[in-house]
């Protein structure tokens, strides 16, 4: 085989390998699902009390495609838009809290996984969190939950937006350190 044919084949092989390795990672992050439909969550996402005599606590429910929202850049970006549109800042500040608890830290009274955040938004919570189940379509609640996860650095950095086109209210979300939610039983009851 001529030398430049071999070169061309070698080039093609490298490109193919390159594609394959980043294909899976890229697909999820970059997809633009303009009209997302989510299967409804089954069961209770919020874990009950950690005190179960002699048994493990109930496992948190995982939604099949809801979790994908927190890896998808478009969904997080839409969540950022909706966070402003629906005035979540009115109680939560821009993640720092106010009337409502902070969303940028690792303390989650009702659970900090995306399914649990989704449940909190949809169902409402005591002490002032309204229920948005009938007021925000389910896919948008998932997008909001994905953005809330981004506030505490719990989304892939490549999927997070750096900043909005507003005054600077959070550190750039691409630089926020990852703060996985503390287990529920480590949250002090006074908080």
């Amino acid at each position: 085989m001529c030398s430049h044919c071999r070169a061309r084949d070698a080039r093609r092989a490298c490109v193919a390998a390159f594609c394959a390795t980043i294909a899976l990672a890229a697909c999820q992050r970059e997809q633009r699902d303009l009209d997302p439909h989510v299967e409804p969550l089954a069961g209770q996402a919020t874990p009950l009390s950690g005190l179960n005599p002699g048994e493990d606590r109930p496992a948190p429910i995982r939604s099949s495609n809801g979790a994908g929202f927190e890896k998808n850049a478009y969904a997080i970006s839409e969540g950022q838009r909706l966070f402003a549109w629906f005035n979540c800042s009115g109680c939560h500040g821009n993640g720092g809290g106010g009337i409502g608890p902070a969303l940028m830290d690792d303390v989650w009274r009702y659970g900090g996984s995306i399914e649990q955040i989704h449940a909190s938004i949809a169902q409402g919570r005591p002490n002032g969190m309204p229920t948005f189940r009938d007021k925000i379509p389910d896919a948008e609640i998932w997008q909001l939950a994905a953005y809330v996860r981004a506030l505490s650095g719990n989304v892939p950095k490549a999927a997070a937006p750096s900043r909005g086109e507003t005054i600077s209210v959070t550190p750039p979300l691409t630089r926020v350190p990852e703060q996985p939610p503390k287990p529920a039983d480590s949250v002090s009851p006074e908080r």
């Binding site: 890229a26 850049a73 478009y74 999927a159 937006p161 909005g164």
Partner: peptide
């Protein structure tokens, strides 16, 4: 900007 062009495109 990242707010209106999400991801790495």
């Amino acid at each position: 900007s990242s707010a209106y062009s999400p991801g790495k495109r």
